[in-house]
Nucleic acid binder design. Structure first.
Length: 491
RNA sequence: CGGGGUGUAGCGCAGUUGGCUAGCGUACCUGCUUUGGGAGCAGGGGGUCGCAGGUUCGAAUCCUGCCACCCCGACCA
């Protein structure tokens, strides 16, 4: 079998790479560090976009678009922000090419830009520079804007979806009259992300706050949702930042309040990226290929006809078209694969690899018996349904698959949060093959955090919102601690 | 940016002690037989052997330089 995958157990990261490519989600392009998102993969991203976009609109946000290029000077206005991104910025220095004496295309050195342009790694600076002109009064607030865009971060080592030089994302940027309102917004959008992760991606996530060293460059606080992949490594699935008045001060964005006093506005920003595609693959898929949650699957049901003769095809085809139309009427996305260039067995394997949640096979026997063979991708179970219940059964099955893969991921996640009370236990878990989260006491210092990272490669993924404060002693330093935090090796 | 490795058909590889027409699997095209879990047989197309120089009667093979990509580290969503 040509498309056989390596198993997860044998080599997890190779399994991931092969799967992304063989399932036609994306491939490496000839541009170093940049991927091509293929139609099947992009279709999943579009479904994610549609769901998120609706959630943003439902919470009062509107979309806009800001420039790809940012004047270099904008970056230097917020000190920690520039420090955070300086090392991975692509810079545009010239605006023209020319042919040299040998006829080769070269950069025209006479066309040097007076001020270099940075390809946005994130848009805070251009957006706050623009907001200065839009915000004058408390009546202009809150300003709740989202942008769907590409960004560039010049990465040394890249992996499809997880880390590429260019990626797609959305970034929300909001302005508020009060600190409290901005913090509420930051939390609200984190909740939107968590709901999206759990209801759509079917990935359970832990909400929490980042430590100072893991915080977004320029933020007062960074909130995050953390998911656990099947190899026991954590993946940040979304972040939401409370920016305080940092950017308002850097870009002089002031408003006049009801009482006539001037003040800087309070800001948030929040984003999720095509990295979620990687999360989706790594959270659910198996050694046979992708397992997609029905809510995000480009094709929810595939119908495969089985026949020998033209007469058999005729009968099978009629039956297939009828059920296809009935499923379409229920709002289900259906593909009827009646190509005669591939055999049924080939199609079965292909759609399993591509994670199509439900497969309906119709052959001569089904025509004779008024039945359908229905297979579900998550468990690979096959069942025979009859004419009178097949449609309702498939509708219910899609919901069941969505629910089932979430529950499976939740069970796995919960079984892999390990509460530890000393450093030996800590290292045992972190270094074990199964990995997972370690819930441990930490003394709150960046020094301890750095030492642990150096010695174990584990980082503090977040300080969970929901962990009850409980005093103890730091697993590393033995100093007093007020709360357990979550450690893990991470992507 | 440090350490290691690899460049030969779309993809995966063999050939590399200098030798004649560059090969295998897969994918692709044609035909026939097939079709309830990645079909079989027969025929066919596809290569400036990473690039540039050099040695030689003769270079994928030896020498020199360059380039690209991959893996392992440091940085990161």
């Amino acid at each position: 079998m040509a498309k056989d995958l390596i198993s997860r157990k044998e080599n997890y990261s190779q399994w991931y790479n092969e799967l992304v490519m063989k399932a036609d989600l994306a491939e490496n392009s000839d541009v170093r560090g940049c991927m091509v998102i293929k139609p099947y993969g992009y279709s999943i991203w579009e479904k994610m976009q549609a769901a998120l976009d609706k959630m943003f609109k439902d919470t009062g946000h509107v979309n806009a678009y800001f420039p790809l290029f940012i004047p270099k000077s904008f970056f230097s206005k917020e000190a920690s922000h520039v420090e955070g991104f300086a090392k991975e910025c692509a810079v545009v220095t010239h605006y023209r090419l020319k042919q040299n004496a040998e006829g080769k295309i070269v950069v025209d050195e006479n066309a040097k830009l007076e001020e270099e342009l940075i390809v946005r790694p994130t848009s805070e600076t251009i957006i706050w520079n623009t907001y200065r002109n839009w915000i004058h009064s408390y009546r202009d607030l809150p300003l709740l804007i989202n942008q769907w865009a590409n960004v560039v971060r010049w990465e040394m080592r890249t992996r499809l979806f997880l880390r590429t030089a260019e990626f797609l994302w959305q970034e929300g940027h909001t302005a508020h009259a009060t600190k409290e309102e901005a913090i509420v917004e930051t939390r609200k959008m984190l909740d939107v992300y968590a709901e999206f992760a759990e209801k759509w991606l079917a990935i359970p996530v832990i909400k929490g706050v980042k430590t100072e060293s893991e915080r977004f460059a320029g933020a007062i606080d960074t909130y995050c949702i953390e998911g656990l992949m099947q190899d026991g490594k954590a993946l940040q699935c979304g972040t939401s930042h409370f920016l305080g008045q940092n950017f308002a001060k850097a870009f002089d964005v002031k408003f006049t309040a009801k009482d006539g006093k001037q003040d800087f506005v309070w800001a948030t920003s929040w984003g999720v990226s095509t990295r979620l595609m990687g999360a989706l693959v790594m959270a659910h898929s198996d050694d046979n290929g992708l397992v997609l949650p029905p809510k995000l699957a480009p094709i929810q049901v595939v119908i495969v006809p089985i026949y020998k003769s033209d007469e058999e095809f005729e009968k099978v085809n009629n039956k297939a078209i009828i059920i296809k139309n009935k499923l379409l009427e229920k709002g289900i996305s259906v593909k009827y694969d009646n190509r005669d260039t591939h055999k049924p067995g080939w199609k079965f394997a292909e759609y399993e690899l591509k994670g199509v949640p439900v497969r309906v096979a119709i052959g001569p026997r089904d025509v004779d018996n008024s039945t359908y063979e229905v297979a579900r991708r998550d468990t690979l179970e096959k069942k025979i349904y009859t004419e009178d219940n097949v449609i309702e059964s498939i509708v219910a099955l899609l919901d069941d698959i969505q629910e089932n893969i979430y529950k499976k991921a939740l069970k796995y996640r919960n079984e892999n949060i390990h509460i530890v009370n000393n450093y030996d236990e800590f290292k045992n878990i972190i270094n074990s093959e199964t990995g997972g989260f370690v819930s441990a006491h930490w003394d709150g210092t960046a020094e301890t955090e750095a030492k642990i990272k150096e010695e174990t490669k584990a980082t503090i993924r977040c300080i969970p919102f929901e962990s009850n404060s409980e005093s103890g002693v730091c697993v590393y330093s033995g100093k007093p601690s007020k709360q357990r935090v979550l450690f893990a090796k991470a992507y």
